[in-house]
Design a protein around this nucleic acid. Structure first.
Length: 703
RNA sequence: GGGCGCGUAGCUCAGUUGGUCAGAGCAGUCGGCUUACAUCCGGAAGGUCGGGGGUUCGAAUCCCUCCGCGCCCACCA
């Protein structure tokens, strides 16, 4: 053995050996309870970043631990088609080549994107291997695989038939830049210094009513003014008619509880086509919906002389015109929060659109119950509160995306009469059902719809496959807390709905990886640490330890190169301890076959205590704690004390002492390697191959 | 507006149900190329555990309050 652990030479060889040996693929044994993690699929086209490296490390530790316990262990890897991000990215790529998706058309665009994405996926998968991920590549899945897509259609169809999916015209969030609707979760609110404009609306027959708005241009689409029914100031005006300035439209004054008497003037202009709350007021009072803002964020024909203006231009123009008419009471600075697209960062428009929705209420109830009754646990527990808070106030979920890339909504319309439609697996079936030529819905599904089915579509559901029967419900879902609503909540709802069972027993939330200065790692900040570069420099074991140490479920964590380097030293320490022990000529015997010295007995007793402690910590998913226990013990007790203490015996002539020492050192080393293996799989396996029989990856956890 | 979390050595953080809990890594300091490892070994230094109050025989650990940070959800014109 060399005096240094040569990770560059050994890591990739060991990985290949593991993969070839079949150690990653579990054998189904009905007598044993399996352990299963479905990997949160990284974007197929994305290079792995440091956050991926953290989750891979944590999951791999869990998986290797359970494999060593002898449980049939499945870690199923996957790749995500990441609808919105991919389409935006690929369109940009095309633009760079002087092309656009419209040149290609839908089918060709998707075909090219698919080819490119499958290529990229190999890079991503190669990086998972570099990190040591012991996942079962024979079972890998892609979110656009044919069987997965079929399961998506199957689910959509069933939900539609049971009234859980409906089509409706609602005010939705619209991203003008990417030309698609967004779910509420894809919208972030940003504080913006704007203006609050007070406008006089003249009453027919004399008088006036003053309304306040941050968006004067939407008045073009006003179809009412609303006041609170309890508001004495306006009691007389309810039921009267207002002349909408600039448009000269007669609109009613209605009374509605939604209006807050204490805010502004207590009177609200109502624009049912461009505000979700106004939409609901409109429903209650039967108001007309006039769409004055188009999908291009410009004023429509319905906006009269303002047609064609950008909303921002119209805002000024309307205010000016009102001022000329003497109807502008005041414009004052006003800080308010404005909805923006999370992805493109531009302000979103709220406008009326026909979309497909999931009726979430009936799905949420059992999903709340499952967590309340402890069938699904979350780590840390505080996320259960966050989950309840959201689930109890959940609103219907817009699942239509106006994108080409993704699962196309399986709805077919009769070409001659689009009011007739059906949900079907393909056009032929739909044609038979509707008795005529059909066209498919243009929209695709929100990525999170298919992602919500991931824990079981990956296992072959809805077919009654062996994997599904055996591994489902899965054991652990390990993911980031930032997607608890996007993903975790949806998997629980859809899992219970589709399979009648929980999708997983435990949700383990990892934290966000930050840099030394506690900043989020992001490309724009230029503080990215490339995990693959770190592996190159210090080895995968060092990166894994550096990332994992000091983390706790739900807690953000820090990385810096120093920390990684420190653990490269640890990997080397393991290597050298083993090297020292391998240099002793006596052939090791089992500890129960040797007359142990009193001291060695004490060392073994102490070590058995460590085994108990680490096992307990691992079972609690206190992973970093277990890692720390092992680190401290191995370095500062085993190396600094036990080994040092053995030297006089090893170099002396007393055979009894010598064999006692050799047996003790080997016993502790061997079992330490097993326990350390989930954390630092490469160096431990490399050592094992030097000293012992078989493969460490399938050894047995000490008792 | 509602909810959640954090504040422990210079830095990054561990401290599970209150009693070897005052710790680790890195940085730093002093001394060592000792035949497993200088990617190492040994020694010393370093914190009134954010402030204040309370419960207790005893609190970094439980309760209250204040200060300072951060996150999530909803969105009020």
């Amino acid at each position: 053995m060399d005096s240094k652990f040569d990770f560059r030479q050994l890591e990739s060889k060991l990985y290949q050996k593991w993969e070839k040996s079949g150690a990653f693929s579990p054998k189904i044994d009905k007598k044993k309870k399996p352990f299963c993690i479905i990997m949160p699929p990284p974007n197929a086209y994305d290079k792995l970043h440091i956050g991926h490296a953290l989750f891979v490390t944590l999951e791999d530790i869990m998986v290797r631990y359970h494999r060593l316990l002898g449980e049939p262990t499945l870690w199923l890897p996957g790749a995500d088609h990441a609808a919105t991000a991919s389409q935006i990215f690929f369109e940009q790529k095309l633009r760079g080549e002087g092309r656009s998706r419209h040149d290609l058309g839908r089918d060709k665009f998707n075909a090219e994107l698919m080819t490119w994405m499958l290529e990229q996926r190999e890079t991503m998968e190669g990086q998972l291997k570099v990190l040591g991920a012991s996942c079962d590549w024979t079972r890998k899945k892609f979110t656009l695989d044919e069987d997965v897509s079929r399961a998506v259609v199957y689910t959509f169809k069933r939900m539609y038939e049971e009234g859980l999916i409906y089509r409706g015209k609602r005010v939705i969030n619209w991203s003008p830049k990417s030309q698609t609707g967004l779910s509420d979760l894809e919208v972030i609110y940003q504080e913006v210094e704007g203006e609050l404009t007070l406008i006089k609306y003249p009453l027919k027959g004399g008088g006036e009513i003053v309304v306040a708005t941050t968006r004067p241009e939407t008045m073009l689409g006003d179809t009412a003014v609303a006041v609170n029914p309890k508001d004495k100031r306006y009691k007389e005006m309810v039921g009267k008619t207002v002349i909408l300035p600039l448009m000269n439209r007669e609109i009613p004054v209605v009374a509605d509880d939604y209006v807050d008497m204490k805010f502004g003037t207590g009177a609200v202009k109502v624009t049912p086509a461009h505000d979700p709350n106004d939409f609901e007021i409109g429903q209650r009072h039967n108001l007309e919906q006039i769409e004055v803002i188009g999908k291009d964020a410009r004023i429509t024909e319905a906006g009269g002389k303002y047609a064609g203006m950008k909303v921002t231009e119209a805002r000024e123009s309307v205010a000016e015109d009102l001022d000329k008419l003497g109807l502008l009471v005041e414009r004052k600075k006003f800080v308010h929060s404005v909805p923006h697209s999370e992805r493109t960062k531009e302000p979103v428009e709220q406008l009326l659109s026909e979309q497909w929705f999931v009726k979430v209420g009936p799905l949420a109830k059992p999903a709340i119950e499952a967590v309340k009754r402890g069938k699904i646990k979350m780590l840390p527990k505080r996320f259960e509160k966050i989950y309840f808070n959201w689930m109890e106030n959940i609103r219907d979920w817009n699942i239509s995306r106006q994108l080409w890339w993704g699962h196309r909504i399986p709805v077919y319309y009769l070409a001659d009469d689009k009011s007739k439609y059906t949900v079907a697996f393909d056009a032929k079936v739909a044609e038979q059902e509707l008795g005529g030529k059909v066209v498919q819905e243009e929209d695709t599904l929100d990525t999170w719809f298919s992602s919500g089915l991931w824990p079981f579509t990956t296992l072959g559901w809805p077919e009654k496959s062996q994997d599904f029967e055996y591994f489902y419900p899965t054991t652990v879902m390990e993911t980031g807390h930032e997607i608890i609503f996007f993903w975790v909540a949806r998997m629980i709802m859809l899992g219970l709905y589709c399979t009648g069972e929980i999708p997983f027993e435990l949700v383990y939330f990892n934290g966000i990886v930050r840099d030394k200065e506690n900043q989020k790692i992001s490309r724009s900040k230029g503080n990215v640490i490339d995990p693959i570069e770190m592996v190159d420099k210090y080895g995968a074991d060092a990166l894994r330890m550096g990332l994992m140490m000091g983390t706790a479920a739900g807690q953000d964590t820090h990385v810096d190169e120093d920390k990684i380097r420190a653990h490269r030293n640890f990997a080397n320490k393991i290597w050298n301890a083993a090297r020292f022990i391998s240099m002793q000529d006596a052939s090791p015997q089992a500890i129960d076959k040797v007359d142990l010295t009193k001291e060695d007995k004490a060392f073994i007793k102490e070590f058995n205590g460590i085994v108990k402690q680490v096992t307990k910590e691992m079972n609690k998913y206190a992973i970093a704690q277990a890692g720390d226990t092992l680190y401290q013990y191995f370095w500062h007790q085993f190396c600094d004390v036990v080994i040092e203490n053995s030297k006089p015996a090893l170099y002396g002539d007393d055979d009894r002492q010598k064999s006692s020492a050799v047996a003790t050192l080997n016993y502790i080393l061997k079992n330490s390697l097993v326990m350390l293996h989930p954390f630092v799989p490469f160096v431990t396996e490399a050592v094992w191959q030097e000293l012992y029989e078989g493969d460490l990856i399938v050894a047995s956890w000490p008792k």
